[in-house]
Design a protein around this nucleic acid. Structure first.
Lengths: 217, 217
DNA sequence: GTCTATAGATTGATAGAC
DNA sequence: GTCTATCAATCTATAGAC
């Protein structure tokens, strides 16, 4: 009985985060009220401030829950690429690096059935005009971008810092846009009959950005 | 004297649009209040509803003012490319099409000194989570995208509809992200010493996306 | 056309009973 | 931990004097 009770308790916090993720992904941070979140979660309005303290802290929690394991997986794959390259005494391959950066975003969204909103959420967070979102997101993303930049510099030593910087940002922009189009409320954009299944999109995307990344001057 | 007076009058409407453009670009549609706009414009709060009727109509006016001449220029350049290709009895070139689509966005922002915010505004509008913005923007953009799609299908007949669809959206995503990074409040992102002048960015971008666009299967 | 004043709705956050 | 009730601030939009 006690066990059941505590289960229900932690469920409140989780319900709020799930509902917030859903709403933030669709309507953005500013466009989502705490009432919309608690309404969808089926909990009391005051519960947000009890469990999180403020809307901003809730946003941080929602983002961190997804970004932390995501970036862990990216780091793991970066290490793997580096190790393999060292073993073969070759440079790491640009395409593998891009795959390591891109694929986890899409696959994390697939694996957890309750979090299809994850892809949209991240896709939106990258570009949300709100100051709070941008600062929180960049705080979590800066170090993985630095690492990506470093890896790519090793893979393509012929390119200048500027070129690598811009091409990586083009990659991020293309990825974020693809993530938003994959979201349920954006299918309107897709032509009738266009394939929007995740694995196909990933394949198209990686082909596109690795060609662009490796272009000669 | 009458002349001067009427000049001041139309200035009110323009001031509001300029201020709105500035604020929408920086804080998004939801994140910008009418008070912030009229405050910056130095006009009365009620003036917005007198001149435009609502916040939504103001947004439409602000977007339309820029998008209309922008898409006119794009169409003009598309025609030019088609004509030249017909004369030479060749297919239109993918890279030229991409240039015709991308360059005007950046150059329109440069030419009008009072509208550096233009680039940021468009870059944000593409991805704004707000329903109002998305619907207004897509209403204005659908036909030019259809045309772009058609031109590119002619240029690259070997690619399937799906592939062209996705690659064009990757292009738009990369472009929009580049436009946001070029905005004043995002320079924080750029590494110290990274070139963010417009013409260099355009060059990098076009090189990147045309390589990706033309990739073989 | 421009102003003041305000209606009417919604927001994030909190106090206090249970 | 969860609830009701509410505060204080902010928002869009409008009515009416000038």
């Amino acid at each position: 009985m006690n066990k059941r009770k505590s289960l229900i308790r932690t469920d409140t916090k989780h319900s709020i985060m799930d509902a917030a993720e859903y709403m933030f992904a669709r309507n953005g941070y500013k466009g989502t009220s705490l009432r919309a979140i608690t309404g969808r979660a089926g909990v009391n309005l005051a519960a947000v401030n009890y469990h999180f303290g403020s809307k901003k802290v809730l946003l941080e929690a929602v983002l961190l829950r997804r970004i932390q394991p995501l970036n862990l997986e990216r780091r793991r794959r970066f290490e793997e690429i580096r190790d393999n390259a060292r073993k073969l005494r070759k440079k790491p391959e640009a395409e593998l690096i891009l795959k390591a950066f891109i694929e986890p975003v899409f696959y994390f969204g697939e694996s957890d059935p309750g979090s299809k909103d994850f892809i949209t959420l991240i896709g939106r967070a990258i570009v949300d005009p709100d100051d709070t979102v941008r600062k929180v997101f960049h705080k979590f993303m800066r170090s993985i971008f630095e690492l990506l930049f470093k890896m790519m510099s090793e893979a393509l030593p012929g390119l200048s810092r500027d070129v690598i910087f811009w091409r990586l940002h083009f990659t991020i922009g293309a990825m974020a846009h693809a993530m938003r189009i994959c979201s349920p409320d954006m299918k309107e954009l897709a032509h009738s009959g266009t394939a929007t299944d995740t694995s196909a999109v990933i394949e198209h995307l990686i082909r596109f950005v690795s060609k662009g990344m490796k272009a000669r001057r």
